[in-house]
Design a protein around this nucleic acid. Structure first.
Lengths: 200, 200
DNA sequence: ACGTTTTCTTAATCTAGTTCAAGATAATCA
DNA sequence: TGATTATCTTGAACTAGATTAAGAAAACGT
């Protein structure tokens, strides 16, 4: 078998074929649109102030996106583990300077789909409109659920919900990133953890 | 001209045709999928515990979606004014019991697209995949921006940002709904407003 | 292997925002 | 029109969570 990619494209194809059916030619065309990239921990994939050029699919490893405020506090907006997409959606869609940094939490192998190649993909294989519609819908549901949690739960409840829902993120992201994602300080998360430990 | 709908479909068609080009037949088919509904203030369009059956397009008027917690506090998740869509996306997509109530803030005229007819629409006119992909992308960007604001801004900054971005919501939603949407109590919003008024 | 940086925790102090209680005004509806 | 209900505000007491400072342990780069 001829492998155009050193990076393993199977996880991405599995995700695509869960939603749309592709011919071999279409698969080949799709794969030829992708750029592979392996990065080491701490590599920046996108930076605030720059236009975000790619959607990133994580084949293996872990990324996070975050903003840095004037007091240079990081605010983690999202995590992406194996099988997830990540991007600065605002910047990517409107092709305007973004507000997010995207950084590798661990050595990672990625597949990048540039905005331009994504548009070509829609032109050539309209079924991909469907795929990305569904992916985006799922992301929207998750985003709204997070808003609901932020509005209705206490810091401790948010932490417990997170550990149940995303145990794998717990394993690869430092606690202060998780605190930030959950909207609290690392010190307070530490207190919560002790509270929970003592209760048991 | 034969009017299938008493409700004015022009705003919705304008929004659709901003993103995809339709033939007259396709327009007719699309419109035939829609159900029109006029409701008075306080009418419930969806209720927690029930499966959400429709995407709702607001032609005229205003809706809100919200959850009610155990202490029977309302938490406003979203507003929808003329030209906006609203739904309990989780419930609609997965066809499982939802967590949101959707309620009219004012007498409103609506166009409803049922989950089933939406699927039929995708079958018959695949271009609609594109339309809803774009609509969903925009909703996701807005949702993520709200998360960023919640993580990085103070209550006062959130209020000021909101009044600038959504002046029309300010005009038709009661203040305690806006406080709830912004993640603060109505009493505190009131204090913020006084603070701002005094400063001027 | 060792110095440096990152990660995580603890404790004291502080504050942004909540809770509770009450009153004023404006809408709503029979 | 008059009673009722919703909206908005004010103030005092309170608390969930932030801030500041510091130390211990682990991970990392060279």
């Amino acid at each position: 078998m001829l492998r155009r990619h050193k990076t393993d494209t199977a996880p991405l194809l599995a995700s695509v074929e869960k939603h749309i059916r592709l011919s071999d030619d279409e698969v080949a065309f799709f794969l030829s649109r992708l750029e592979e990239k392996t990065v080491s921990r701490r590599t920046l994939l996108a930076k605030e102030g720059e236009v975000c050029k790619h959607s990133i699919f994580v084949v293996d490893g872990a990324l996070k996106s975050y903003t840095v405020d004037k007091q240079s506090n990081e605010h983690v907006i999202s995590f992406a583990l194996s099988g997830w997409w990540i991007a600065d959606m605002y910047s990517l869609i409107h092709q305007k300077p973004g507000v997010l940094r995207i950084e590798a939490l661990a050595d990672s192998s990625l597949l990048l789909l540039s905005k331009q190649k994504q548009e070509e993909l829609y032109e050539r294989i309209p079924k991909f409109e469907r795929f990305f519609r569904i992916i985006t819908e799922n992301a929207l549901v998750a985003s709204q659920q997070r808003i609901i949690n932020n509005l209705t739960l206490t810091a401790e409840e948010r932490y417990l919900t997170f550990t149940e829902k995303y145990p794998f993120v717990m394993e690869c992201a430092p606690l202060h990133n998780i605190a930030s994602y959950l909207g609290m300080t690392p010190e307070f998360l530490s207190k919560i953890r002790r509270r929970i430990a003592i209760r048991k």
